[in-house]
Amino acid sequence: MKNEKFEKQLTEWRQYLHMHPESAFEERNTSEFVAKILTEIGLEVHRNIGGPGIVASFKVGDGPDIIGLRADMDAINLTEEGIHPYTSKNPGKMHACGHDGHTATLLGAAKLLMERKNFNGTVRFIFQPAEETGKGAIAMIKDGLFERFPVDEIYGIHNMPGKPAGSISTRVGGFMASEDNFVIRIKGQGGHASMPHMSKDPIVIASEIVLALQTIISRNMDPVVPAVISITEFITDGIRNAIPSNVVIKGDTRSYNSEVQRLLEDRMRTVSEGLCKINGAECHFEYTHEFAPTVNSANCVDIAVKAARNVVGENNVDANAPQLMGSEDFGVFSQKIPGCFVFIGNGDDSEGVGNVPLHNSFYDFNDKILTIGAEYLAELIKVRMPK
């Protein structure tokens, strides 16, 4: 039965957050807003975990299990172009990924669970900063998150434009990819464009490297194992009539497990350094791990799928959704503790709302899915820790 008062409350929370976006580790107003609502609901709030992060716990009965529910709070540095009564009031910042909706959804789940008390165990509500930078989860963990607030499993959600509003999708195993960044610095010898024989042209060397990197996927990877290498920047210090001395290549890689990450890094380093050596140039290779892959536990997926079917019906649940090469900071949690991450459809073309892509300046979270998300998270706790 539709609860219009509850739906209105969640919408007000979400739209307030949308008007006041804060980017990574700056979520002080957001954190205070969340803490205020949790306190009003009746929960004891723990602040300043990994920066502005928040944890609140709620125990019912004597069940030994402890389940974590996580939402991200940060916005991105983007100027909003959509016009709403709740358009961003913070210049150059907007909730273009729907974290305002995720936060409001988890607050709604907390409210439902506090009212219903229909489970036996402990639930922890985890509000994480700095998801977009891939630094928030590890900051909370380093600040003693799981020592101070241990959990047996952890669950998270993310809206997904292009999927029917309120539909829920997930899969066992690798669901979202890692993101590793690389920088290849090539130092050759510049010279006049009319006398290339007197130079060690780093553009030619760098071009060889760019082409050779593509063969790592096609000739070193098992064809059934997904991975991506993308060159996104090619920078020189040359001018129109001068061959440069330096070229910088930047980009990222995506994959679903640590073995593939190591293979990509090792082969990319070997290819880059080898081609530079052959051509008499210097090479400096950097490779950093920014986002861990999000890998769903089979047991946790079973729980999530059962809860989803109870809320939205079997026809609106995809338990074997395609993998996505995008990255999510939830992956750090799933490396430490079994968990499951799901997508909740934000709307597709047929609905005419909610289908603007993430990180687009016209994006907006679909308020119609707030109660669905809250009911799903509350049902998940009921299914996982029945009375």
Rank of each mutant, 00 (worst) to 15 (best):
Q335R: 12
S169F: 00
G188E: 01
L275A: 07
V248C: 01
S57R: 15
I235G: 06
L380M: 11
T122H: 10
M221C: 07
S218K: 10
V248R: 15
N320P: 00
G162F: 08
V305Q: 04
M198G: 13
E147V: 12
I239Q: 14
N355I: 06
A137R: 09
A56V: 02
K306H: 12
Q261N: 10
I138Y: 03
F362Y: 13
Q214K: 14
P196M: 08
L38R: 09
N181Y: 07
K368E: 10
E282C: 10
K306E: 15
P386W: 13
V305P: 06
K59G: 00
A212D: 02
D364G: 09
L263V: 01
D72S: 06
R185Y: 08
V151R: 13
P52G: 03
A206K: 05
M198I: 11
M94Q: 07
V353Y: 07
D222L: 12
V247W: 05
A71C: 11
Y376I: 11
M325V: 06
S218I: 04
S207L: 11
E282A: 13
K93A: 03
A319Y: 05
K277E: 15
I205F: 04
K277P: 00
I41C: 02
L38C: 02
M195A: 15
E233F: 00
L113I: 10
E153L: 09
S199G: 14
L38H: 04
A319T: 04
I49N: 05
N29W: 00
N346S: 12
Q128T: 03
F25K: 07
N360H: 15
A227R: 06
K306A: 11
A304E: 07
L380Y: 09
R262E: 12
N310K: 13
S230N: 10
V55L: 01
K187M: 13
S258C: 09
E147M: 04
A56Q: 10
E115G: 02
L213N: 03
D62K: 15
K117C: 04
P85Y: 01
H359Q: 05
N366G: 03
H46E: 08
L69C: 05
C300I: 09
G101D: 08
S218A: 11
F127C: 01
F127G: 02
P338R: 08
N315L: 09
A298S: 11
M385I: 10
A193T: 10
E40G: 12
R14A: 02
K8Y: 04
E351A: 10
G174T: 07
K59Y: 02
G326D: 00
E179W: 01
A139Y: 09
K306D: 15
L358Y: 08
E44D: 13
N90G: 00
E379F: 08
S88P: 01
I203F: 07
P338M: 10
